[in-house]
């Protein structure tokens, strides 16, 4: 419950920050990494709901063609988390391929989500979408890296209990 509340506060703060400084922050460049980090930190339905609400509210405040990026992020993250949970299940008879590095899945979700958002927000004009996508990545990747590092460190030091779905 405390974790949900902290993530709610963090998402709200980031939402406000993006709305307040539209001159400095491209839309979704900060909110999306935080939403992705929330999904991969929580790894449960509450994370999906929190991230989904934040992305929907953001779309409502700055509407583009359709909230495709938010939907893509939610579906992709859920798929990858569900797959990771299956792979983590130990079985004496089945040999499974080792999981990806801990940072690959969130980064993949973020890149795909931002690419979708850049394309949709420029109404499928790829020439404009490409530089906007790169600019968003410049902000989003460090932000996601910081949150993932905090998440990983919390796991390593035993401050965070890893729950499975």
């Amino acid at each position: 419950m405390k974790t949900n509340f902290i993530w709610l506060l963090l998402l709200w703060f980031v939402l406000v920050l993006e709305q307040a400084r539209v001159d400095l922050l491209l839309s979704q460049s900060l909110l999306m990494p935080v939403a992705v980090a929330c999904l991969f930190w929580q790894r449960n339905g509450a994370g999906s709901v929190l991230a989904g609400i934040a992305l929907t509210v953001h779309w409502l405040l700055q509407p583009v063609l359709a909230p495709i990026a938010g939907a893509v992020v939610l579906v992709l993250a859920t798929m990858l988390i569900a797959r990771g949970a299956r792979q983590a299940t130990w079985s004496p008879t089945v040999s499974r391929k080792s999981m990806n590095a801990w940072w690959v899945d969130p980064l993949f979700v973020l890149v795909v989500g931002l690419a979708c958002h850049s394309i949709v927000s420029t109404e499928f004009n790829l020439q404009t979408a490409a530089p906007a996508f790169l600019s968003r990545l410049l902000i989003a990747i460090p932000a996601l890296g910081l949150l993932l590092f905090a998440s990983h460190a919390a796991e390593e030091f035993g401050w965070r209990k890893v729950s499975q779905m």
Partner: peptide
């Protein structure tokens, strides 16, 4: 988790419409 995600997808679709 899929339940939460599907709920949010439904919410997004409703908001969009």
């Amino acid at each position: 988790m899929w339940f939460g995600t599907c709920t949010m997808l439904l919410l997004m679709a409703t908001v969009w419409v």
